[in-house]
């Protein structure tokens, strides 16, 4: 996989600081699963957290804390945890999806319960808690997503096919990392459908008539 589009440093810092909403964190983790370059960068943004941990003013633990942990460390790790990790790995291998997404979906992209939301566009909402939304969009060849701007940040990870917009061409593994000021209109640019994961930290704002019509309908 040749990845050309990566995250902004600020996004990786938000990931490392643990301040991303769940959907965005899953999306970042999924790209990291495929991208050595961003993994290397995250080891540096994580380091900021490590250095801060050293600098923090400690807060005393309960007096019996060490004893309680010592009582547990000789016991084997709970089966359940180990089992769920290995089943996630199986899911990931079977579906070809990156591990964090595979474990969240538990099925392949084609097995999902897609909902048609307009001409040539289907959607699957991951229904995660927290601000913003996390969805999979499945877009037919030649079709474009309505023009929209963003109030917050929007991350997109390509899982199948490709699209092009004002920012360039995006293929499997690539991410688009855009915020408030960016107006863009992705269009699927081959005869293969495009499936992408989109996570936002605030609702999208569509522009123009098409956007206004589509918004209540798509509910993005």
């Amino acid at each position: 996989m040749k990845i050309r589009h990566h995250f902004d440093d600020a996004t990786l810092m938000a990931y490392s600081s643990g301040s991303l909403p769940q959907g965005m964190a899953v999306l970042v983790g999924s790209h990291l699963h495929w991208c050595d370059e961003c993994r290397e960068r995250v080891s540096q943004t994580d380091r900021i957290g490590g250095d801060l941990l050293e600098a923090i003013e400690p807060v005393a633990m309960e007096p019996d804390a060490l004893a309680s942990i010592m009582a547990l460390i000789d016991q084997p790790e709970p089966e359940q945890k180990l089992r769920s990790l290995s089943s996630d790995r199986l899911d990931s291998a079977r579906t070809g999806l990156p591990l964090p997404l595979a474990s969240m979906l538990g099925s392949s992209l084609d097995e999902l319960d897609w909902r048609r939301i307009g001409y040539g566009v289907q959607q699957y909402d991951l229904k995660l808690d927290g601000p913003g939304a996390t969805r999979l969009l499945r877009i037919a060849p030649g079709v474009s997503v309505p023009h929209h701007t963003h109030r917050g940040n929007e991350l997109t990870l390509i899982l199948r096919g490709s699209y092009s917009d004002e920012l360039g061409r995006f293929c499997v593994g690539d991410v688009a990392d855009v915020d408030t000021e960016v107006k863009h209109q992705p269009i699927v640019d081959t005869d293969e459908e495009c499936i992408c994961l989109i996570a936002t930290d605030a609702p999208l704002k569509f522009t123009g008539l098409m956007g206004r019509l589509a918004q209540p309908f798509i509910g993005l």
């Binding site: 902004d8 440093d9 600020a10 810092m13 938000a14 490392s16 600081s17 643990g18 301040s19 991303l20 909403p21 540096q44 943004t45 900021i48 957290g49 801060l52 923090i56 601000p131 917050g152 940040n153 915020d179 408030t180 000021e181 930290d201 605030a202």
Partner: peptide, 29 residues
């Protein structure tokens, strides 16, 4: 990192645009 605030929350708290929060973070990095 210490208060787990998102970029938008930081922008709001400091009364600066989201873009400035991100550019400050990039510069710091």
């Amino acid at each position: 990192y210490y208060e787990g605030k998102s970029h938008s929350e930081i922008a709001e708290q400091l009364g600066i645009p989201l873009g400035s929060v991100k550019s400050r973070l990039r510069l710091a990095f």
